[in-house]
Computed example of a mutant assay.
Amino acid sequence: MLWFRLALKFGKSVARLKREIDCHEFGYWMAYSRIEPWGPYMDDLRMGMICATLANCFRDPKKHRDPFQPIDFMPWAKKQDAGERPAFEDPADQAQYDALALFGIDLNRLKALGKRRYVAKRGKRGNNDAME
């Protein structure tokens, strides 16, 4: 994703940047993006911090006990508990949910195709779809 962020920043295509930036310089860009993150996500986070600060200044503690957080003002971000996951009574339904959520594998579709196993293999250009 860093290639795309750099392409947006410099107004060039990714292919052109890959020709112009060598691996040594790209390593510096990777380090810089970790030290000082930038891009749309960080812009939204900074704006969320401003909104949370203003909302907390005028917050009524009787109506809102907990202070507002920056994530409350980022509509695309979902709050989730790390351990929260729906529980199904049927183990097959639970397996279907887990396979879809974790790996993007639709077990019911594989079963309909007569596939008993699914093996993920890395192919050309990151293609991970391989069924046996």
Rank of each mutant, 00 (worst) to 15 (best):
D44F: 03
Q80P: 05
P67D: 05
I35V: 15
A82W: 12
T53I: 08
R59I: 02
K62D: 06
F68V: 06
F68G: 03
D81P: 00
M30S: 14
D43C: 11
R65C: 12
I71E: 07
I71V: 09
W29V: 05
M49W: 13
W38D: 04
Y28A: 11
L54N: 15
A77F: 04
G83E: 09
K78D: 04
R85T: 05
Y32L: 14
Q69W: 03
A77V: 03
W29C: 07
I35R: 14
M47L: 15
G27M: 09
P37I: 06
D66W: 08
W29L: 09
W29H: 13
R46T: 09
L45S: 10
P70S: 03
M30V: 15
I71S: 02
M42E: 15
I50C: 06
A77L: 06
F73Q: 00
W29R: 11
P75N: 00
L45V: 14
I50G: 04
C51W: 08
W76R: 02
A52R: 00
L45Q: 07
I35H: 08
K78G: 07
R34W: 14
G27K: 13
A31C: 06
K79M: 09
D43V: 13
F73G: 00
D81W: 10
A77P: 01
A55F: 06
H64D: 04
M49A: 12
D66G: 02
F73H: 01
R46Y: 12
R34S: 10
A31K: 15
I71R: 04
L45R: 11
C57M: 15
G39I: 07
T53H: 14
R34Y: 10
M42T: 13
K62V: 01
D43P: 11
L45H: 13
S33L: 13
D60V: 03
P37K: 08
P40Y: 04
R46F: 08
P70Y: 02
Q69Y: 04
Y41C: 07
G39W: 04
K79A: 08
P70I: 03
F88G: 01
A87T: 06
T53F: 12
F73L: 00
A82T: 13
F73S: 00
D60Y: 03
P37H: 06
M49K: 15
D43E: 14
E36S: 15
A52H: 03
P86V: 03
M74Y: 01
K79G: 08
A55K: 03
A52F: 04
Q80Y: 08
W38F: 12
Q80H: 11
I50L: 10
R46Q: 14
Y32K: 15
R34Q: 10
R34T: 11
E89D: 13
P86G: 02
F68D: 04
I50N: 02
A82Y: 08
F88Q: 00
G27C: 10
F26V: 03
